[in-house]
Each structure stands twice: as C-alpha cells, then as structure tokens.
Write a protein that binds this DNA or RNA. Sequence first.
DNA 1: CCTCTCATGTAACTCGTTACATGATTTC
DNA 2: GAAATCATGTAACGAGTTACATGAGAGG
Lengths: 204, 204
Amino acid sequence: MKQIDPPDDAEPDNVQPEQAEPEQVQPEQVELTATAWTALGFIAVRPRSGYEIKQACAETVDAFWGVSYAQLYPQLKRLREAWFITGEESGGGRRQVVWHVTERGRRALDAWLVRPPAPPQLRDEALLKLQFVQSLSPAQALPLIRAKRREFEEWIARFTPEGPPSSPDEPADLLHSYALTMARAGLTWCDAVEKALDGAAGSR
Amino acid sequence: MKQIDPPDDAEPDNVQPEQAEPEQVQPEQVELTATAWTALGFIAVRPRSGYEIKQACAETVDAFWGVSYAQLYPQLKRLREAWFITGEESGGGRRQVVWHVTERGRRALDAWLVRPPAPPQLRDEALLKLQFVQSLSPAQALPLIRAKRREFEEWIARFTPEGPPSSPDEPADLLHSYALTMARAGLTWCDAVEKALDGAAGSR
DNA sequence: CCTCTCATGTAACTCGTTACATGATTTC
DNA sequence: GAAATCATGTAACGAGTTACATGAGAGG
C-alpha cells in the first residue's frame, strides 16, 4: 500500500492542525468542473477507484451527465491536488488506486451542492431536423419521430425498476422517476404526432 | 452589391453545366457541424443575414440547439467554401451580407435531413446534484426541485402559443408541442416530488 | 449627443470526445 | 492459449463559450 498525496507545491491546509483556518476565506471555493464534483460525490459515498466511479456514473447519472475515462482520470488528479481526496494504491491482485474523501473535500462538496445549479444544456439533432421538415413532408418527419420513440422506449426499459414485488409503479429514486416521467410523456407526444402525420399523409 | 464567392481553390462543380456530375460520388457528403446545417436550413427557407439566422434560431431551435455568433459566422464561411451558399453584400443603409442557398446546398441539406440523427446529449447540473442529496436531506433537495420547476414554467410561458382565439391548447408547431408536453410532465414530477419531500421532512 | 439596436467578426479558452497505448487477471 | 474484463492513463482533436473589438444607423 502506497499513499498517493498531492505534490509539495499544493496547499496542505490540514497538515498542521494548530494552524487555524482563515475565517471568511473558504478554502472550498476551488473551481472544478461538474464532472470533478461528480467523481467527488461518488467517492464521498464510499471510497472508490476511477473504474468504479465510471461504473457508478453509468448506472446513475449517465443520461444527464456523461463521464468518460479521458475526463475522469485528469479530474481525479485535480481533486487530489486540491487535497479533496487521497489515494491508496492497493497491493494484492490487480493494480488499482482507491480514492478516499478528505474532510476538506466533504466540506467543498457540500458547498457545491447548495450553490445554484447551472442551467441545463440540451443538444438534440432529431428535433433540430424536425424543425426543417415539419412543414414540408410527413414522409421525412416520420423517421425522426420514430428515432425519438426508440430513445424513449430505451429510457423506459432502462429505468423501470425490476423485481415484480413491492413497488407497483414509481421508483423511490428521484432520477429514475424523472427519466420515466419524461420518457412516458415523450411517448405520448410521439403517438399524437404520428397520428397527425398519418392523417396529413393520407389527405395529401 | 458585391458577390461573395468561394476562393478559387474551392471546388466549383456547377460553373460548367455541361460537365456531368459523377454518378455515385455525392458531392453533398461534406462534413459539417449540425450548427452549420442549421444555418443552411434557415437560409434555404429564405435568404438571410447571419444576424437574421441567429434571431431565427433564438425563436425556434434555441432550447434544443443553441447557436452563438462565434459559432455562426465561421460556419457561414465554411458553407460558402463548400459552395452551399453565396453571399450578397447589400449596399444602402447598414452593411450586411445576405446569404442565398445554391442548388448544391439544397441537395446537401436534403441529404443531411434523411441521415439518422445523432443521439441527444443532455447536461443537467440540477439533476446531477439531486443524485447526491436525494437520500440525505429533503432540505437540500427542495431548492433543486424548485430550480427545475422554474425552468419548466419558463418553457411553458415561452412556448404556449399566444392569441386566445382559434387554437385552444396544442400548437401546430411540432417543436412547441414537444416543449410543452415535456414541461408539463416535468411540472407533474415536481409536484409529486415536493409532496413526498414535505412528507419526509414532516416525519423527520 | 447619447444610447440602443443592427451587424460582423476574432481570440483565447474550456470542456469533452475518440482513439490510442499498456498491461494484469480471470474465464472459457 | 485466447478472449473478456479490470484498470489506468495520454494525445490529438473538435465544438462551443465568453469576452473582446469595431462600427454604422436610428431614435430619443
């Protein structure tokens, strides 16, 4: 086991406990990407390796916040440099670095969580194309609607809680219920649009 | 009036009409960003200046596909270099360049419209934060739900068709109806979650 | 005269993606 | 012994954002 700590030029801050923290200056106000905060969030739940963080993201926030290794590993480095996490290279078996949150890291995470969230960003090529074909031809609009329908169906398949017992419909997980609500609304929209488009195609 | 055409090293292709197009080789397969196709789409409806394209985007696709000047102007240059548009610097009054679609540009746009759309990308910090606070405290979850609620309310205000007469509820515009459907579903979700959260807070 | 809107653009930067590189361990 | 999975990373590239720069005409 080898301790992985920030380089010497990084601010220590908790090495000497008798050195009191500056009162109003919050050391937590380090600028990080939301992806870095995400990693920190999962580490704060329990210590994890980069690989495990990626898995956790894939199972939970992937639909609203995609995370790739090429982003993740550099961000872990930044979190370490800010003394928000410390790494422990586990011996025995495969090589892996397990990251632990520090007290400082936990405080910083809490501070981030209560800051107002950035407005959501959406890029949807299918809807974009729909803008240009909607008034021209149902023939071209239909495949786009079908593409959206497939997306919604995949969401539903992915976020519907398994296990027939207990929960009849709505999951306790807020994000799952959000995804399901949106996907169902999307399907309703697809139904209505396809129906209208079929009508228009018939009369043409 | 001054004609603005591609530089000489760009492929002409329609200068000599007697030179037949290569049969299977489609000159339309130029790689462009969706933002460039968006500009081309609006130019194809009618000739416009960059400024007018930006306005059209803001009124229509902005929520699904944001476009900024810093992206737009370079993309117009690329469209011109591909001979998809030609520009006409209008004399008289303010300086402005009005872009016209070429035949070649129109064909390329049609080809793009029928290609399968890229999967949508979403980045929603509010939902991300919700992932980390949902199991811990309703006190921290509530502001995030309220932020989502405000978003949905803004969407509804923005996309609800004005003019009390005629249309009672659903607009003919597919994108407007999409936005409204999703926003309403979102509000329903906010209601349910806030209620559940209040209950949990009361029992705690 | 001042300010707002029209109008076009560039520079620097950030974030994220794809593709690549490497190697150990488990499973068939 | 071959393939899948675990596991960590880097390099090159691309798209998009913010901020900056410039200037003319319209309206008060």
